[in-house]
Amino acid sequence: MTAETDDLARLHDRLVARAGEVGLIDLAYRAVDSPLGALLLVATEQGAVRLAFEEEGHDAVLADLAERVSPRILRAPRRLDETARRIEDYLGGRSRSLDVPIDLRLLAGYRREVVEALPRIAYGHTATYTEMAGMTGRPRAVRAVGSACANNPVPLLLPCHRVVRSDGSAGGYRGGLQAKRWLLGLEAAGAPAARERLD
């Protein structure tokens, strides 16, 4: 590292602190290392607005948010420390709840209702897409439930991985089928499964 690189890192920290003070950071983000690969965590002042898997391409996700929410986006790891720690605890099998502030501004209508209902499926349990449709008062909207889950902006934080097919198979997942199985395994078995990384 050159002295100039250090200077730029220090200046970046300071910019983030001052921009935060005057309310100019619309979206703060950081990476979170996890057994499921590098996760991208993005938050507004209200809460986590997006959690993305490595497969989704972090740059592409940020570019999309710049267009849909605001381009005032800065890497501000410290602001997201608490949420990151909770994710790590959850994925490490040390915690069963991921109770963090969430901002669902990317969703509207029925999709939002479905995603908001996800925490009703308890840790270690699953529900089928059909059951979720019933739970949200639209028993015939099974497909819509599937697409709401597939587009959940904050997977893990709102547990769409707990929604499975009626035949018991896992169904799709934003982070890939393997990730979904890994999460279901983690919740079924508790901590031990968490020690193996998914590769």
Binding site: E4, A63, L65, A66, E67, P71, R72, I73, L74
Partner: peptide
């Protein structure tokens, strides 16, 4: 048009501005 995330601007131009 789409503006890139501001972080990208800082990364790309921080050195020049310095």
């Amino acid at each position: 048009r789409s503006l890139p995330p501001f972080e990208q601007v800082v990364e790309e131009h921080g050195r020049r501005v310095l």
